[in-house]
Design a protein around this nucleic acid. Structure first.
Lengths: 162, 162
DNA sequence: TATTGTTATACTCTATAACTATA
DNA sequence: TATAGTTATAGAGTATAACAATA
């Protein structure tokens, strides 16, 4: 019915509320609450893993999607990554600035353009992938044999809510 | 091996990359990727549920924790909510400004203070709880009978990573 | 009229570092 | 020396709205 999170209750000077168990109450059973905690923890670990390597959090997913889908357009990227199209523009600008991606006009539609990785972009993606794989291996170890189920549930939440 | 997210592939003018299936590649099996998508979707839904009610995202967890643990200190709050203590201060300032919480000096330690809900704070918490419960019921419906397992996995990730 | 992409703007969540007042 | 709380600052992620070009 109650629990402590993280390294809360082991200070020493007993008696104050800060040392006692913390009652989460209804929060205890809120998926949304733990979704936030877990995502935040994962995000911190991701940054830590890639701190020395120059991975920028937003870059990896975008770079992966372009790498896996040469010719993809910004609007398709925004849908695949679940973000608004206006948030894609600055990421692409950065990736262009470092010559990691290239843009090419698409024949049928002059409003849009096709994206692809440059050789440098492919190298970068490969390097980032190592970090990401190491990170996800850590998560894999935590969930053990229940990874498939966890992924299925997360996918369903991501896709069907709202 | 590949899939589309959200409402990507149903536009109409076939042929461009944006209409075809998007290959997620390694992303497809990254827990971290879906953790972000799921948390983001949940967060959007949460805001939508509480848009008319004046719930501010950061308030609910803090208010709940104070309600469930009268006398709790800011530092204990920061641990229970998994955030740095510096992020608690502005939330408490807001809650004070709307007279939802009260501070009281704690006998043993003049550096700290004890927090509790005012009557108005209790009412507000009750009202917010209704919205939150409705939101989490939606999540519950999605995960069905596997909620306990999902929560257990999320808790483990939140607690043991890093 | 609708869509693609860009820009401007803003909000939330979060962190680090430096500071104070205590302990 | 170490801890509680505050402040200042910054960065990531995200969104909305308005716009130009094109469909």
């Amino acid at each position: 019915m109650s629990e402590t999170i993280g390294k809360a209750a082991d200070a020493g000077n007993a008696g104050t509320t800060s040392d006692r168990e913390i009652h989460l109450g209804p929060l205890e059973n809120y998926i949304g609450f733990y979704l936030r905690l877990a995502q935040n923890a994962s995000f911190k670990a991701f940054k830590r893993h890639t701190g020395e390597g120059d991975l920028r959090p937003g870059w990896f997913a975008i770079l992966s999607l372009i790498g896996g889908n040469p010719g993809i357009t910004p609007i398709a990227l925004s849908r695949a990554s679940g973000r608004d199209k206006s948030t894609i523009t600055p990421v692409l600008r950065d990736l262009m600035r470092f010559h990691l991606i290239a843009r090419e006009s698409v024949p049928g539609d002059r409003r849009s353009y096709a994206l692809s990785l440059t050789p440098a972009g492919k190298e970068k993606l490969a390097r980032l992938s190592e970090h990401a794989a190491r990170h996800d291996a850590e998560l894999d170890a935590l969930v053990g044999g229940r990874k498939a189920e966890l992924l299925a549930l997360l996918r369903r939440i991501a896709a069907e809510i709202d």
